[in-house]
């Protein structure tokens, strides 16, 4: 039986939103590492963002649901730890969407470049951790609004 191309499967997966930051898709995050066919089974390889991230099991479920909706029946999800996920894999589009959503995108310098609300570069750290393992809490010293920063790892 002919099956959809891996390009087609990628396209479907690119539309699946992240369960905790729904402006980002799984493709924006860069956590889908591979799509392949092994016989009539579609094998999707996923890497976790943080080892204890509670979203991981939801993400796996969402991937399976999305592919079943497209008519695939034999799906296998593989977990890949090595190489470990890094925010370098986040797409440029994903970074823009994050900032528009009010979350400062990750920067190699280790802190946000500017306030996602007013664009001021005058920001200070409130806490190294935020509402999810992937974020920290910062504040703008100009508009005084707090905001979340997507940690660079």
């Amino acid at each position: 039986m002919a099956h959809p191309s891996t390009e087609q499967v990628w396209e479907w997966l690119e539309a699946v939103p992240d369960p905790e930051i729904p402006v980002l898709t799984l493709a924006d995050l860069g956590i889908i590492r591979n799509v392949d066919w092994e016989g009539d089974t579609c094998v999707v390889t996923v890497t976790p963002t943080y080892s204890g991230c509670p979203a991981t099991s939801i993400i796996n479920l969402d991937i399976e649901t999305a592919l079943r909706d497209k008519g695939l029946t034999k799906i296998e999800l593989r977990n890949q730890l090595d190489p470990a996920w890094t925010t370098d894999w986040m797409s440029e589009k994903g970074r823009e969407k994050l900032e528009k959503y009010g979350i400062a995108p990750p920067q190699p310098a280790g802190g946000p470049e500017r306030c996602p609300h007013c664009g001021s570069p005058n920001v200070e750290k409130l806490s190294q951790f935020g509402s999810t393992p992937c974020k920290a809490q910062w504040r703008c010293t100009d508009c005084l609004e707090p905001f979340e920063y997507f940690k660079c790892i």
Binding site: S51, C53, P54, S127, F129, S131
Partner: peptide, 10 residues
């Protein structure tokens, strides 16, 4: 929040 996140990582 920081402690809860640390626990989660562990």
């Amino acid at each position: 929040i920081a402690l809860a996140n640390t626990a989660l990582d562990l």
